[in-house]
């Protein structure tokens, strides 16, 4: 909408010291990250480390225990019920499991954000829905119900629904998991195009390292509730943090495997203290 004018405006999303626990389980333990406009940030990390939880904080679906998420100068956690509804207009989100409305057809699913968030006419909506479904190579399914599609097709519909109203910020939760390599490359192209051409700020969670290096302007790795490394792709590949190397190369043996078994919160705190020294993140006392 407005051009970035001052220095503070050049950060689109600022996450500071974000903490979240579910009961005794600490999921986010002080996450810090900044995202600039039109940047494509890729978040990687082991299963269950809280990547989806992090995304949900950015869009205000979850409230932090402490810390803050500031988007365009607005602290998300301070917004009331009605303000947050307005605030979310600038977002699109593709959920990990699709989250398609199962009582609606594919057409109705993709048209939903257009009907709700834009003033498009029926004809314009029709065109845009076609365009978005075409973008993810789904033609001739618009009258089907989500339950009639394959898992990968549903994921692509979720993607199409997220991008349909051309939001400023897009959050993709594993958009390509379970897709064949060609379709994955195709979705990657779309994400690249969104940030290059439309200057969309995107945050993508993925387990596919090839994808991550292709689409990310920057890659951040989440581990044990913290961002343990963040760097542009080329640099990220060369980081000598053994956890990063283990993850990139998908090795079963390494520091990540030693700490994966679910342990009590007190155990994990000890563990974190030992490991954080080398990546420059201060250990908590």
């Amino acid at each position: 909408m407005t051009e970035p004018s001052s220095k503070t405006d050049t950060v689109k999303i600022r996450i500071r010291d974000l903490r979240k626990s579910f009961g005794p389980k600490v999921v986010l333990d002080g996450v810090n990250v900044d995202i600039v406009p039109a940047e494509s940030l890729v978040v990687i990390g082991g299963s269950g480390t809280g990547k989806s939880v992090l995304l949900k904080h950015i869009i205000g679906l979850l409230r932090p225990d402490s810390g803050t998420v500031v988007v365009d100068g607005t602290a998300v956690e301070t917004l009331g019920n009605r303000e947050i509804t307005e605030f979310r207009r600038k977002f699109g989100m593709a959920f990990q499991e699709g989250a398609l409305f199962d009582s609606m057809t594919i057409w109705q699913n993709v048209a939903f954000p257009l009907q709700r968030l834009t003033k498009m006419s029926r004809g314009e909506i029709d065109d845009r829905v076609e365009e978005c479904l075409g973008m993810v190579r789904l033609e001739g399914v618009s009258e089907k119900l989500p339950s009639q599609l394959s898992g990968g097709m549903r994921r692509r519909v979720g993607f199409a629904r997220a991008v349909a109203h051309q939001p400023e910020i897009l959050l993709f939760d594993e958009p390509t998991t379970g897709l064949d390599p060609i379709t994955t490359a195709l979705i990657d192209e779309v994400i690249l195009d969104l940030s290059d051409r439309l200057k969309t700020t995107t945050i993508t969670i993925t387990h596919d390292m090839e994808s991550a290096f292709r689409i990310g302007d920057r890659i951040a790795m989440l581990n044990r509730g913290k961002i343990i490394a963040e760097a542009p792709p080329e640099e990220f590949k060369r980081l000598d943090d053994p956890r990063v190397q283990q993850f990139i190369h998908g090795r079963a043996e390494g520091p990540l495997s030693e700490e994966t078994p679910a342990r009590g919160p007190s155990d994990s705190r000890d563990d974190l203290g030992e490991k954080t020294g080398e990546s420059g993140i201060p250990s908590r006392s």
Binding site: L61, T85, G92
Partner: peptide, 18 residues
């Protein structure tokens, strides 16, 4: 309940729909 556990309710909220 199904809409809640399959995140369809979250999806509604995300699309600015209460």
């Amino acid at each position: 309940g199904t809409m809640r556990v399959t995140e369809q309710i979250d999806a509604l909220e995300v699309m600015a729909t209460d």
